[in-house]
Amino acid sequence: MKIIKPAVAGTLESSDIQIRVEPADAPGIEINLNSSVKQQFGKKIIQVIHDTLEEMGVTDAYVEAVDKGALDCAVKARTAAAAYRAAGKEDYEWRVRP
């Protein structure tokens, strides 16, 4: 999935995360995280953003994330929403809960 324009999803409210996805200057996925719990959970949050983008077939993107204590499911949801907006797509492949 190709990122064609900058797009944002999420807010700066407590328990949310604001994700901004932009076309990348260089190949690969680069993530810049700002979080009050970066020391403790930074690696995990970056991993969730990275995995979510990869699952959607995004190979090249620059991501700015401002975390306000979001659960993993919110990180995934905001990343997916921002990436889809940035790709100008709406055909998400929803999975079935087992």
Partner: peptide, 15 residues
């Protein structure tokens, strides 16, 4: 609307 759909979907898949 799209962001809320992703969020509720993701919450139901996880929580």
């Amino acid at each position: 609307k799209d962001a809320a759909r992703f969020l509720v979907y993701s919450a139901l898949m996880t929580l």
